[in-house]
Design a protein around this nucleic acid. Structure first.
Length: 511
DNA sequence: TTAGGGTTAGGGTTAGGGTTATTGCCGGTGCCGATCT
């Protein structure tokens, strides 16, 4: 290791002359075999932290990634700089392609994969056989943010790490509060990870909270802002329907090019909208939290929240997408009385009630008594157990954890053990609800805070923060009339011929 | 016109066919140190 000249290798593989802050430290640790938690601001080149070691290490580097689109982007970028021995394995491939990849898996140095696919025993065996040197968890805050309810496979990564004979573990994130960091360490079962934490605050973002009377005022506000500022804008909603409706309204009442984006859309449509926004063919996006991860648009100037985020972490993440070019940007949160009920209901709908837990226990007992297996498809399971998909996933994880369920079979019935499991699972739900309520409450507290919003927002997240470059926040005297962002120049909509319109529709550049 | 009810994000995965996983040997290559010119 000491003989490796990292700068030289960085240049050879990636064509960069020097490391950015944090990269070298993380890479050196990873190469020495130390488990590392790296928290680096977005756009600081996190991926180099594992891509370079992947090239230099003898064995394979596995990267756990939360989104297929992120995996594909990375692979595309690497292939573009002539690094060919990388692959993303996911459901976009057909079985033939997949088999081919697995049969030649030893040829790859860098393998991107989802936590779900990693759960499959055959996948685990193949990876073990080929020898994993470095196990990377990209966007590691997903462990804490999604693992507990939405994607429990994130909580099972530690088992895989053990099965793979403890390769070096590298967890990377752009937003990990002290609590999230703790979650990452404990759920990866690596309490002694070396931490490389860098501040993620953005001195060029002005924080602005406006208290309004209701939806009508919110909409008028957005319309007036879009008319006043010709800048790339994201408007976040907690409702798909609302995002669609406001998108239509804005298209009608302003001359901006607006579209909506949420998880309920066809993936093809989502890709198109994202591309158009990145290319500057759209001015504003009305979206849910589905939009954002992996979006690297440097000149985002305005991030509006029409609804509350459930946690301050999420707010920091979403608003932090503004101003990556370090130019003056604004985060605006629109709040009206009663807004708290929507996130409250979403939180409530995510975890099973005591009654639901009881019903599922009864159902499992019946199946055990009759020697039945659980239904194979998710749909049948939901019908049998009478709970929503996310509730079932949470429960399934809990039952497996308590050794009641294994691969669709109830493996044991013991009244004492079941009683204990019931209590433990109910308590766990309670705990999670309390925690989530607390997180939501801290968002509300922030909104009603009368002191500096920047200070209040960052105080729990990092020891210190940089003072605002421009204007600080709405409690420190911000006024819209003072905000003079760099506006887009091609303000006047060109008139297009029908050929040009067609080309535009087909996404061909008509400049 | 008003009161009141309903309001609800986030992503991955998906079957069925014929060859699996492991070990040893052989040949080529790159690195390093010793030796020779």
């Amino acid at each position: 290791m000491s003989t490796i000249n990292l700068e030289k290798e960085l240049d050879t593989y990636f064509g960069y002359q020097a490391f950015r802050p944090g990269q070298r430290e993380i890479i050196e640790d990873a190469m020495l075999g130390n488990d590392v938690l790296g928290v680096l601001p977005t756009g600081s080149g996190k991926s180099i932290c594992y891509q370079l070691p992947a090239m230099l290490l003898k064995g394979v580097t596995v990267v756990v990634s939360p989104l297929i689109s992120l995996m594909m982007d990375q692979v595309k970028q690497l292939k573009a700089i002539n690094i060919k021995d990388v692959v993303a394995i996911n459901s976009f491939m057909n079985t033939k392609e997949r088999r081919e990849i697995w049969n030649t898996i030893h040829r790859y140095k860098l393998i991107y994969i989802s936590p779900e696919l990693l759960q499959r025993p055959d996948v685990q065996r193949k990876l073990k056989h080929v020898g994993v040197d470095l196990f990377v968890v990209d966007e590691a805050h997903c462990i804490s943010q999604w693992g507990h309810e939405f994607r429990p496979d994130y909580l099972k990564l530690k088992k895989i790490i053990t099965f793979l004979d403890h390769p070096t573990v590298l967890a990377l994130s752009a937003t990990a509060t002290t609590n999230v960091q703790q979650d990452i360490l404990s759920y990866l079962n690596k309490p002694n990870m070396k931490k490389h934490i860098y501040p993620v605050d953005k001195p060029n973002i002005t924080f602005n909270v406006e208290h309004l009377s209701g939806d009508k005022e919110k909409q008028e506000k957005i319309v007036s802002l879009l008319k006043a500022y010709y800048v790339p804008t994201i408007i976040y909603f907690s409702s798909r329907l609302e995002a669609e409706n406001i998108s239509a309204l804005l298209s009608l009442q302003t001359d901006r090019r607006v579209a909506f984006y949420h998880g309920g859309m066809e993936s093809q449509d989502r890709i198109i909208i994202q591309q158009q926004f990145m290319n500057g063919q759209l001015d504003a996006i009305c979206c849910t939290s589905a939009f954002g991860m992996g979006i690297n648009k440097k000149d985002l100037r305005l991030i509006i929240h029409y609804h509350l985020t459930p946690q301050l972490e999420a707010y920091i993440q979403e608003v932090g997408r503004a101003g990556r070019d370090n130019k003056s940007s604004v985060g605006l949160l629109l709040f009206s009385e009663g807004d708290i009920f929507l996130p409250k209901n979403i939180i409530k709908g995510e975890l099973p009630t005591k009654n639901e837990i009881t019903t599922v226990f009864r159902q499992l007992k019946t199946m055990y008594d009759q020697g039945q297996s659980l239904p194979t498809t998710d749909q049948e399971k939901l019908a049998v157990f009478q709970v929503s998909e996310s509730k079932w996933r949470f429960l399934q994880y809990q039952f497996e954890k308590h050794d009641i369920l294994k691969e669709n079979n109830v493996i044991i019935y013991d009244s004492q053990l079941w009683k204990e499991a019931f209590l433990a699972i109910s308590n766990r739900c309670e705990e999670r609800l309390i925690k989530k309520d607390k997180q939501l409450q801290s968002v509300i507290n922030w909104i009603y805070h009368t002191g500096c919003l920047r200070k209040k927002l960052y105080q729990d997240f990092q020891p210190s923060y940089t003072e605002a470059v421009d204007q600080c926040c709405s409690n420190c005297g911000f006024s819209w009339s003072d905000w003079q962002p760099e506006q887009l120049t091609h303000k006047i909509e060109k008139t297009y011929s029908w050929e040009e319109k067609l080309k535009k529709l087909l996404l061909v550049d008509v400049q």
